[in-house]
Computed example of a mutant assay.
Amino acid sequence: MIRVEFLGPINKEAMEIDVKSLKELKEVLSKDEELKSWLKSCAVAVNDKIVTSLDVELKDGDKVVLLPPVCGG
């Protein structure tokens, strides 16, 4: 199981899910209409490191965080 956390305005509770890659996670999260639009604009961190590819393998205990774009100063 991995833990998925959603920050800022995404407004979803963290979840535990059994997937083996970011690609598989995206497929699962895309089924949620509220999350689908966020997936296009969010940065993704795996174990506190930003990743840019869906070809990241996940293992039991990993933490994935969806980071929406924000404005600030």
Rank of each mutant, 00 (worst) to 15 (best):
M15I: 12
N11S: 11
S21E: 03
D60T: 10
V70S: 04
D62T: 01
P69H: 02
L29K: 02
S41T: 09
V44C: 06
S53Q: 00
E33C: 13
I10D: 08
I17C: 02
D62R: 00
I2A: 08
L67H: 03
D60K: 07
V64E: 02
D62K: 01
E34Y: 05
R3G: 14
K36G: 04
K40R: 12
V28H: 15
V51D: 03
G72I: 04
S30F: 02
A14E: 13
K59L: 07
M1L: 10
K63I: 13
R3I: 14
E5M: 13
L25S: 07
K12E: 15
I2C: 05
K49T: 12
N47I: 07
N47H: 07
A43C: 11
L7Q: 04
E57W: 06
S21V: 02
E57T: 08
V56A: 01
T52D: 15
S37L: 10
K36W: 01
L22T: 00
L25E: 02
K23I: 15
V44L: 14
K20D: 06
L54I: 03
K36D: 13
E33D: 08
G61A: 03
F6N: 03
E13G: 09
G61D: 08
A14H: 05
G61Y: 02
D60I: 10
M15H: 14
F6P: 06
I17S: 02
E27F: 12
K36R: 03
E24I: 08
P68H: 04
K59Q: 05
D60R: 09
E5A: 13
R3Q: 15
K20T: 12
L58M: 06
E5K: 15
V70Y: 14
D60Q: 12
V64T: 00
I50Q: 06
D18T: 09
V64C: 01
V28Q: 10
E13N: 11
V4M: 14
L7A: 06
E24G: 11
C71F: 11
E57P: 14
K49C: 08
E16V: 09
S53N: 01
K31T: 07
E24R: 05
E27D: 10
E5Y: 15
P69Q: 00
